[in-house]
């Protein structure tokens, strides 16, 4: 049983099929994924409101589908309106920020403004992180908003080992390992550095094959009990506001 906390709905400009509802369901079935949290690719790379609207419709198609609203801090007022529009929707569990696409850094005042505005809500944040500077910026946010829970998407990407050291002292930063490179020691070192309860399972599906990340977990020499934490127990606790699964 797996909960995938990093998925996407929408097309990609690459040599792959567009994944509609049926094809996504088939993958979730085949790979034993019981809950998947999606953000809209259209919302990330283009128009966040149009993408979020499509996501909301998509989430109705299956009980396993949950979502992040993508916000674009370049449009601060509209981003705040967007969250208020969907805050009562139980299928929305959080906010996705992608500083590389929006070109608004995590230490920009507009980013802080968004987080501050919704810091008292149940929403979690999935933050695309790539490189040490972004990880450092994330720790500043985590320190400033200690009750807000952040997921460091990709664990900082190709400098993940340095990024783990940077975020380890921040209990409200969780890490998830997906990347184009399936480093054999990434999951194990994540557990050893930040603790097993802060390592989540995420894949970047429909961009990346969940089997790619399952292999990263399976090669880590974990006990069956440890795998349970990674595959779903930590995510359940995070999604239920800190309550144990």
């Amino acid at each position: 049983m797996i909960i995938d906390i990093h998925c996407h709905y929408g097309s990609w400009p690459f040599a792959m099929d567009n994944f509609g509802v049926d094809k996504i369901k088939e993958y979730l079935d085949r790979l034993n994924i019981v809950k998947a949290i999606f953000s809209s690719s259209k919302a990330i790379v283009y128009d966040f409101r149009e993408g979020n609207r499509e996501l909301i419709e998509f989430l109705k198609a299956d009980d396993r589908f949950y979502g992040y609203l993508v916000l674009n801090p370049n449009y601060l007022k509209e981003s705040i309106e967007e969250v208020n529009r969907y805050l009562d929707n139980e299928k929305i569990v959080g906010i996705k920020l992608h500083p590389a696409y929006s070109r608004v850094s995590l230490d920009d005042e507009r980013t802080k403004n968004i987080i501050e505005h919704f810091s008292g809500t149940r929403l979690i944040y999935l933050i695309h992180t790539w490189g040490v500077p972004m990880a450092v910026q994330l720790t500043k946010l985590a320190g400033q908003f200690p009750k807000v829970r952040f997921i460091m998407g990709h664990t900082g990407g190709d400098t993940w080992y340095d990024c783990l050291d940077i975020v380890k002292w921040y209990p409200n930063i969780y890490v998830e390992p997906c990347s184009s490179y399936a480093d054999r020691d990434k999951v194990r070192m994540s557990i050893d550095t930040v603790g097993i309860e802060r390592v989540l399972f995420g894949t970047d599906f429909t961009l990346i094959n969940p089997a790619f990340v399952i292999g990263m977990v399976e090669c880590s020499g974990l006990t069956e009990e440890e795998k349970v934490f990674i595959y779903y127990k930590n995510s359940i606790k995070l999604l239920e506001g800190g309550k144990d699964a």
């Binding site: 792959m16 099929d17 969940p210 089997a211 292999g215 399976e218």
Partner: peptide, 30 residues
């Protein structure tokens, strides 16, 4: 990508894919 193998099979031929892992630096299981 989730359907990379199926895509190569559809547009080229699965005979043109060779298994490699990059282990031990990368995950053999992946």
């Amino acid at each position: 990508s989730p359907d990379a193998l199926e895509y190569i099979k559809r547009y080229v031929d699965i005979d043109r894919v060779i298994f490699g892992s990059g282990t031990p630096l990368l995950s053999f299981e992946t």
